[in-house]
Simulated assay, not measured.
Amino acid sequence: MPTPPTDNQAAIERAIQQGLETERRSPAANADLERLTRQLRYREAVDQRWLRLGVGAIVFVLSAGWLAADVTLTLAAGWGELGGRPFRLDSSVLVAFLTTSTATVIGLFLVFLRWLYPQTNPPEERQPESERR
């Protein structure tokens, strides 16, 4: 005659049943995890696209304003007046301002473009400069 199950045996059997149920569900859980991972990657890509679009618009407006100021300053120096008032700058000041502002705008665009289009290959795969020639 079989002995009635004790509390310890019942607890062990329940743990085994729960473990079996968990193993049966794990492929579905892996599929859910992969689906959630794909969703998160997609959301990240969309968010990054909007961020880059916004930053690109800001960089463009900033650069356009800066270059408009350069043109205005150059024309004002050439005509000798700005807003109806006499305007005069030494040529070395004008050259220094135009040179530094142009370099700043070009540098701003280069930094933005490096961020917008990052290099995807890791440093180990890049050829050293001595091997490029």
Results as ranks from 00 to 15, higher is better:
124 E>I: 06
75 L>S: 07
119 Q>M: 01
70 D>A: 13
62 L>A: 14
97 F>T: 09
77 A>P: 10
69 A>F: 01
11 A>P: 08
122 P>I: 02
27 P>I: 10
29 A>P: 00
129 E>A: 11
74 T>C: 02
60 F>Y: 07
120 T>G: 12
66 W>A: 13
30 N>P: 00
68 A>I: 07
128 P>F: 06
113 L>C: 02
43 R>H: 12
96 A>F: 03
9 Q>W: 08
11 A>F: 03
37 T>A: 08
115 W>I: 06
127 Q>F: 07
62 L>T: 11
39 Q>W: 02
15 A>N: 09
112 F>N: 02
89 L>I: 01
77 A>F: 04
37 T>N: 11
108 L>W: 03
73 L>T: 15
7 D>P: 04
8 N>Q: 12
94 L>T: 04
1 M>I: 10
20 L>D: 15
6 T>G: 13
132 R>V: 14
43 R>S: 12
132 R>Q: 13
19 G>A: 11
123 P>I: 06
52 R>A: 03
89 L>F: 03
127 Q>C: 02
76 A>E: 05
13 E>T: 14
42 Y>H: 12
69 A>L: 09
132 R>S: 07
39 Q>I: 05
38 R>L: 06
3 T>E: 13
44 E>K: 08
10 A>M: 10
86 P>K: 14
74 T>D: 00
44 E>D: 06
125 E>V: 11
